[in-house]
Simulated scan of single mutants.
Amino acid sequence: MKKFTSLKSIPAYLPIVNIDTDMIIPKQFLKTIKRTGLGKNLFHEMRYDDDGKNIDNFILNKSPYNNSKILIAGNNFGCGSSREHAPWALLDFGITCVISSSYADIFYNNCFKNGILPIILDEEKIKELAEYSKRKEEIEINLKEEKILFGNNELKFKIDPFKKKCLIEGLDDIALSLEKSSHINEFEKKVKSARPWIFND
């Protein structure tokens, strides 16, 4: 997992509430277990018409938002089923930070496990940032200091210290387990010595 410390981008503003994981990545694209290749199908039903052509007025089909790394969304983002393909699709498209007033719990936690920073702000602050999106101006996310910089202004946000550490150090669940490999090996040695029959072929 890539380390996350700071990020600059023109944010894409998608002011739709209750965007569920099926809207983020529809069920027909869930056959893969790979984390790559899903970006082209992100928000598929909103991005493409019945013939597979781009819907020009959808935000992520417009320049410069088609290169946005930050998505500003409506409240209750990521509700619905618990599919991990949703953060995979966002990440594969290039989005590494989502800003919303609330998230579904499972989606929120899955973001951290995949290198995406989900920021929670109240609606008034989100409206402030949305103006910078409309003006096609960059904002900056500083995770270490837990703040968003835009123009001459800044907004503070809060993040769980452990989740913050994982993002900054690029630690997913596997990496966290590997950090304890010496303890795991020591435990296995003790078990093998005390109960050798467990390890017999």
Rank of each mutant, 00 (worst) to 15 (best):
residue 45 E to W: 10
residue 45 E to Y: 14
residue 46 M to F: 15
residue 49 D to Q: 07
residue 50 D to C: 13
residue 51 D to N: 14
residue 52 G to W: 07
residue 52 G to Y: 10
residue 53 K to C: 11
residue 53 K to H: 15
residue 53 K to I: 06
residue 54 N to T: 15
residue 54 N to M: 15
residue 54 N to K: 14
residue 54 N to L: 15
residue 56 D to I: 12
residue 57 N to A: 11
residue 57 N to H: 10
residue 57 N to I: 10
residue 57 N to T: 15
residue 59 I to E: 03
residue 59 I to Y: 09
residue 59 I to D: 02
residue 60 L to Y: 04
residue 60 L to N: 05
residue 61 N to K: 08
residue 61 N to Y: 00
residue 61 N to S: 11
residue 62 K to H: 05
residue 62 K to F: 06
residue 62 K to L: 09
residue 63 S to Q: 13
residue 65 Y to R: 05
residue 65 Y to V: 02
residue 65 Y to N: 02
residue 66 N to D: 15
residue 66 N to L: 12
residue 67 N to I: 03
residue 68 S to G: 11
residue 68 S to T: 09
residue 68 S to Y: 00
residue 68 S to N: 04
residue 69 K to Q: 12
residue 69 K to E: 12
residue 69 K to R: 13
residue 71 L to K: 02
residue 71 L to T: 01
residue 71 L to G: 01
residue 72 I to C: 04
residue 73 A to L: 03
residue 73 A to W: 03
residue 73 A to S: 13
residue 75 N to E: 13
residue 75 N to W: 14
residue 76 N to G: 06
residue 76 N to S: 10
residue 77 F to H: 01
residue 77 F to E: 00
residue 77 F to G: 00
residue 78 G to Y: 07
residue 78 G to W: 01
residue 78 G to C: 05
residue 79 C to F: 10
residue 79 C to D: 07
residue 81 S to C: 04
residue 81 S to G: 06
residue 82 S to E: 08
residue 82 S to N: 08
residue 84 E to P: 01
residue 85 H to D: 04
residue 85 H to R: 07
residue 85 H to E: 07
residue 86 A to R: 01
